[in-house]
């Protein structure tokens, strides 16, 4: 507004004038804006009344919603509105929680034998189990439990390190496992390493080896020089109490023998394991998961492939 004389008819100004002629309109607020503003004030007052709001000393006003009810140790607690109480109520009595608990209670009350024989319950185990397996296990054992050779064992086959009964699997999940084989890099010279690997490959009938070498390897495997039998058994069939795998079958969990094309490449894979040893850990889930979750996972893993 350069010229005060241009003033629109009926519009007020704030009354200040700067630089001789600069003034400012003082238009009334638009009506919709004003009512929205009053609306928010009204909302705030209502909110103060209904919800925890104003600090008073070391406490605060609790609001009129004083009816959030949940149970602790069999006793009903009623308290003011707050997210933790709502959480408790949700966990205990929301429709989804109640429906889920119906199933989980049934699972908790069923023993493994019936659980694995009952198609309906097994269907629940599969769908619920897939979810929690995804949350807690799949980052290592991969979706579907197929594992990664050398790192995380395959859970969908019928070959087990620690045993495939429900009791074994449950123990594995609850307490974790430490798969340990010592490195033999200091124990063996190149020749010894070579013949032991030959023997290991001969155990599962892989062609292309040298029978004389394998025989020398056998002496080391079964004797004190190698001591392999302590863990893998004199017959090489493995000892679940040590988590030591069966070396006489065609399943490999650390040495990626199946992926190697030639006999020499297979031998290198086995030599690598013996040379470097193995140390890998399955974390314990007994504290993180509830007993019924452990049960569902046990049954889930058991039914993936070769539960025993």
């Amino acid at each position: 507004m350069n010229n005060p004389s241009d003033k629109k008819q009926g519009v007020q100004t704030t009354g200040h004038v700067w630089d001789d002629d600069l003034c400012e309109y003082n238009n009334p607020l638009p009506r919709w804006w004003l009512w929205t503003f009053y609306g928010t004030v009204f909302f705030a007052i209502l909110y103060w009344l209904l919800y925890p709001a104003w600090p008073v000393g070391s406490s605060y006003t609790k609001g009129l919603f004083n009816d959030i009810t949940y149970t602790v140790n069999g006793e009903e607690v009623t308290t003011h509105w707050n997210t933790r109480a709502l959480f408790m109520r949700d966990m205990q009595s929301s429709p989804a929680a109640v429906r889920q608990r119906e199933f989980l209670d049934v699972i908790a009350a069923t023993d493994y034998e019936d659980l694995l024989a009952d198609a309906d319950k097994l269907a629940f185990v599969r769908s619920y189990g897939r979810g929690i397996f995804g949350d807690y296990c799949a980052a290592c054992h991969q979706t579907g439990g197929t594992g990664i050779v050398g790192r995380y064992p395959n859970l969908s086959d019928d070959d087990w390190l620690w045993g495939g009964s429900v009791a074994d699997i449950e123990r594995t999940i609850m307490h974790g496992r430490l798969g340990y084989m010592p490195p033999f890099r200091e124990t063996f010279d190149a020749e010894q390493l070579d013949v032991v690997a030959e023997y290991v490959l001969s155990l599962s009938g892989i062609d292309g080896g040298d029978a004389a070498k394998a025989q020398r390897g056998e002496v080391i495997f079964k004797g004190m020089a190698g001591g392999c039998f302590h863990c893998h058994g004199a017959d090489g069939k493995g000892l679940p109490s040590q988590g030591a795998p069966n070396l006489t079958d065609s399943v490999w969990t650390i040495a990626n023998v199946p992926a190697a094309e030639t006999f020499d490449a297979k031998k290198e894979a086995v030599k690598g394991v013996i040379h470097n040893g193995v140390q890998r850990q399955m974390p314990a889930f007994g504290e993180r998961l509830s007993p019924v979750e452990v049960k569902v996972l046990t049954a889930y893993v058991h039914q993936l492939g070769g539960g025993q």
Binding site: Y70, N82, R84
Partner: peptide, 10 residues
Amino acid sequence: YDEGHFAQFR
């Protein structure tokens, strides 16, 4: 801690 313990702080 029992289930309701932490709810009492809110």
